[in-house]
Design a protein around this nucleic acid. Structure first.
Length: 152
DNA sequence: GCCAACGTTGGC
DNA sequence: GCCAACGTTGGC
């Protein structure tokens, strides 16, 4: 079972919003970056775990965990002209963008702040630091061990 | 709000 | 296929 880091801007959709969603479950849509899309569509599997990361806010960092409860499926918002995520160039028979559904698992008592992650030498080769803008990232087993220590 | 880094677009 | 221009992301 793999672990992933998903970024979100809490002003748009926070871990609290996920918790408050029906069944603590929500669609993770609006991914519009090809590298992130490829991970979603080709690598991510049902039951994988997601570490949620809040960006563009006062307390930037990892805020909790969720589980992927569906395989990737075409993101319906790409065909919705009313949606901010509408993509006129995506066709039904060749969908360009994918999404998954997530179920909230835990919200950390205290977030693991980016400022603290930066202080841990063993974490400096995380994708988070090497590809700062990628909104869907793998987390290696080695890094997971270290992160688990930070929340226990 | 600023700005650096990065991704996308489009003319050639 | 190159690359300049432009748009977006995200920490601070």
């Amino acid at each position: 079972m793999a672990h992933w880091l998903f970024k979100t801007e809490p002003s748009e959709f926070s871990i609290g919003d996920l918790y408050k969603s029906p069944g603590h479950t929500a669609r993770w849509d609006g991914i519009r970056n090809y590298q992130a899309r490829n991970l979603l569509r080709d690598e991510i599997e049902q039951d994988d775990l997601v570490w949620l990361y809040h960006s563009q806010c006062r307390a930037v960092g990892l805020v909790g965990m969720a589980k992927i409860i569906t395989p990737a499926y075409p993101d319906p918002s790409q065909w919705d002209p009313e949606s901010h995520y509408y993509d006129a160039k995506s066709s039904m028979d060749n969908p360009r963008w994918y999404c998954v559904d997530l179920c909230h698992q835990t919200t950390f008592e205290k977030p693991i702040l980016l400022a603290d992650l930066k202080k841990i030498a063993e974490l400096q080769d995380m994708t988070l630091f090497k590809q700062g803008r990628l909104s869907v990232q793998p987390i290696s087993a080695h890094h997971i061990k270290i992160l688990h220590r930070l929340i226990s």
